[in-house]
Design a binder for these strands. Structure first.
Lengths: 214, 214
DNA sequence: CCGCTTGGATAGTCTCGCTATCCCAGGAAG
DNA sequence: CTTCCTGGGATAGCGAGACTATCCAAGCGG
């Protein structure tokens, strides 16, 4: 199909598709001559994934390119590919290590990982931007006066571990090896809006149950 | 304290504080004369909350103003204030109701709420932007070929309900009534980065356990 | 009383994610 | 063959968002 048809079927304007091609989010079409290129179903699939990452997942365009680059890199194993893709997602900036809230948060996060027995996470802690994001978020909550400690966080960690196990179970039953990493990234990015919405709905629901609609 | 000291103690530049004052995120200082205004601890607290919402929570400035407006509105009850604040947060745009993925997603979300017994959420479904966001996210996953249905989502809904219950329990033990809504909003916005980070760490951990670092 | 700070107003900057315009090379209709 | 239309690449522009830098006039302090 031509660019116009790709646009038609995806609902994305040709100008935007050209932009994604320029930015390297989509592989170029197969050139048939100097003025025409042909696109296939794979391009359409990829375009839908890109749109989902950017629009629903809120991932910046430059980041999406990086993430997809890791997903496509089939020279690596599943864990490394997934890890690299997750690490490429946007994260909190470097915290100020002199801030006592940051120091306390880091200590609590370390205790948390120990109590949960997440060995890989502990080993990777100094490098992992995900770990850093967690420290920053906990430090922020502590700075606002909420005394988040390891004991308080542990049940949430357990719950998220259950979520992760469930997702990997699902992944194993359904997808081919290459699809698995893509699915895992889609899970990481697109599943988060689902969890967030469920969390907010649950908050509203539980608040209404306890206090009624005063 | 003066603006300069407020800036000093919060780590936010005077230019930015002035910007927040202009945008109505911070109440103006108490004017002592034509060229000087005095700020107190309450301003500092509020400024820290604003920074946390914007920087860690990623909430747009205009949205933060709206959210805080609802939090401050003590003419309303807890549930309504919390609900209004949650509804003011950024959400997915109106989905295209002709899209079969959207229709299917809506049906599955409705089944999900029924099976979870979330009555308030069901009643508010036509109005709630949170409900709409959930439909959009599920529709996106379905469009990418993942067959998310009510049965698949129910355990996650249960988990998020557990999270919400735990948060409200915590809220009840600690905060005064006015603080409760602020804490609930802080929980909604700032707890999400914590959950997200825990989720991603759990994914990495579980992937490493199952497949090793290939 | 004179410079320095304070706070308010205004305009500028930088990044993002597109979007509109130009241009040229085919391919098709006349 | 020529003319006109379309597809695709390159470039520049736009509009929102979050600051940021510059001015300016009114005090206060030595």
């Amino acid at each position: 199909m031509r660019l116009a048809e790709l646009s038609e079927r995806s609902g994305v304007s040709t100008a935007t598709i050209k932009y994604y091609l320029r930015e390297g989010l989509l592989p170029p079409g197969h050139r048939v001559n100097a003025t025409t290129a042909e696109y296939d179903e794979e391009h359409l699939r990829r375009l839908r994934l890109v749109r989902a990452l950017i629009q629903v997942g809120g991932v910046p365009v430059a980041t999406a390119r990086e993430v997809l680059g890791h997903v496509d890199d089939d020279s690596l194993g599943r864990t490394v590919r997934l890890g690299a893709a997750l690490w490429a997602l946007p994260h909190a900036p470097e915290p100020d290590e002199d801030d006592p809230a940051v120091v306390a948060a880091r200590a609590e996060v370390d205790r948390l990982l120990e109590s949960l027995g997440w060995e890989t996470a502990r080993e990777l802690a100094p490098l992992s931007p995900v770990h850093r994001s967690l420290v920053v978020a906990v430090a922020t909550l502590r700075r606002l006066g909420h005394l988040w400690d390891a004991e308080l966080m542990a049940p949430y960690g357990e719950l998220m571990h259950q979520v992760a196990r469930r997702q990997l179970d699902f992944m194993e039953t359904h997808a081919s090896p290459t699809e698995q990493v893509e699915l895992a990234v889609a899970s990481a990015v697109l599943f988060e809006p689902v969890l967030r919405a469920l969390h907010r709905l649950a908050q509203e629901e539980e608040s209404a149950r306890r206090y009624g609609i005063e």
